[in-house]
């Protein structure tokens, strides 16, 4: 400011010298450049990843990589179907087990629990997200898997008429344990986002239900859950994204057998686990195949998360369109779920 008036004696006072405006522009453009640089870096990484994965696609084609079930390092042949299926089965298992529990906790914390209990329980559930992946793996393999084995074996014996679930011998690391661990790991994020979505239900609707003589559960069923369907779906998709990409815990408990998963309580493999496990020693085509697995993982999570974000965003948009809702719903939901 002073600079302007001193340096430009003949200049109008209202006009700032280019020199004084420089820091402003500098900041604006350097911040924009920083943002652009980060975006460009990610794009660059992606292109390089495609490039590194290319040899394996060139050898036998993308379709063979995606749909062949022979992952054979010795024969230098890489069909990723067992990995893709392992990833999908464990992730879906995690959703089936984790989402109902997560949504129930969200409903409990927003609609049912006494206000004294609310904060401590919320904090405890969020602490689940603070436990590192490798610790889940450690606990899963040394505590959960051995403790659950008798129960699993009992189930497998009783349910032997159901293909995939029943029959066979329960191995100690297995697909089911991986799904269960993933369910625990996605619980905090699904619960947190569901909680925020449920908190946006206008009190009007809840009172309408109560005023009709609905019991508390009927109010939840009538006014709360239908209103939150899109948001909860989005939350579940975010959880799915997490489960698909989770690496270390799954690597430890899934059994690392590159075969088509043929039994729920048997060993399997996943895209992320194969990279963590084999990358260190991989050479040539094998390494290229692992990059391709990484690419598949990347694309899969991008799709799942993109859809999830759109769902959550749309859910909070339509909310903030109605006047009774706090406009903050949009920003409250989007901040990076921290784990």
């Amino acid at each position: 400011m002073e600079a302007a008036s001193v340096a430009g004696g003949d200049r109008s006072v209202l006009e700032r010298s280019p020199l004084a405006r420089l820091p402003d522009r500098l900041l604006k453009y350097s911040l924009a450049a920083l943002t652009a640089l980060i975006l460009a870096l990610i794009v660059y990484f992606f292109i390089r990843l495609v490039g590194e994965a290319e040899p394996v696609f060139a050898k036998s084609g993308i379709l063979d990589f995606a749909f062949n079930n022979d992952w054979n390092v010795g024969a230098n042949h890489f069909g990723a179907l067992p990995l893709v299926l392992g990833t999908l089965i464990t992730s879906v298992l995690a959703l089936i087990i984790g989402v109902p529990v997560a949504v129930a906790t969200a409903v409990y914390l927003t609609e049912l629990c006494p206000s004294r209990v609310k904060t401590p329980v919320t904090v405890l559930i969020e602490l689940l997200a603070a436990v590192p992946s490798v610790v889940y793996g450690l606990w899963g393999i040394f505590f959960l898997a051995p403790k659950l084995q008798p129960l699993e074996q009992w189930l497998a014996d009783r349910l032997s008429f159901i293909p995939f679930v029943g029959g066979g011998l329960v191995t100690i690391p297995n697909i089911f344990i991986a799904g269960l661990i993933l369910a625990i790991m996605i619980l905090p994020i699904v619960s947190a986002i569901s909680r925020e979505v449920i908190a946006t239900v206008p009190p009007d609707h809840k009172e309408a239900a109560l005023g009709l003589g609905a019991t508390r559960w009927e109010m939840i069923r009538l006014a709360v859950l239908p209103y939150c369907r899109a948001g909860i779906t989005g939350a579940s998709m975010l959880g799915l994204g997490r489960a698909v990409g989770e690496t270390i815990a799954v690597t430890i408990v899934i059994g690392d057998a590159p075969q088509l998963p043929h039994q729920l309580f048997g060993q399997g493999y996943s895209l992320a686990a194969v990279i963590a496990n084999e990358f260190g020693e991989a050479q040539g085509l094998h390494r290229s195949a692992l990059f391709a697995a990484g690419l598949a993982l990347f694309v899969l999570t991008l799709l799942v998360n993109g859809v999830a974000r759109l769902l959550v965003l749309r859910a909070s948009r339509s909310r903030s369109a109605s006047p009774a809702n706090p406009a903050s719903a949009g920003t409250a939901i989007v901040p990076a779920p921290v784990r």
Binding site: E52, V244, G245, E246, F291, L297, F298, N305
Partner: peptide
């Protein structure tokens, strides 16, 4: 940025390895 939060951490490892 939102979508980036969902990228598996192992993929970031691959990125740096490649670069």
């Amino acid at each position: 940025v939102d979508v980036l939060t969902g990228v598996p951490s192992i993929v970031f490892g691959l990125f740096i390895y490649i670069a």
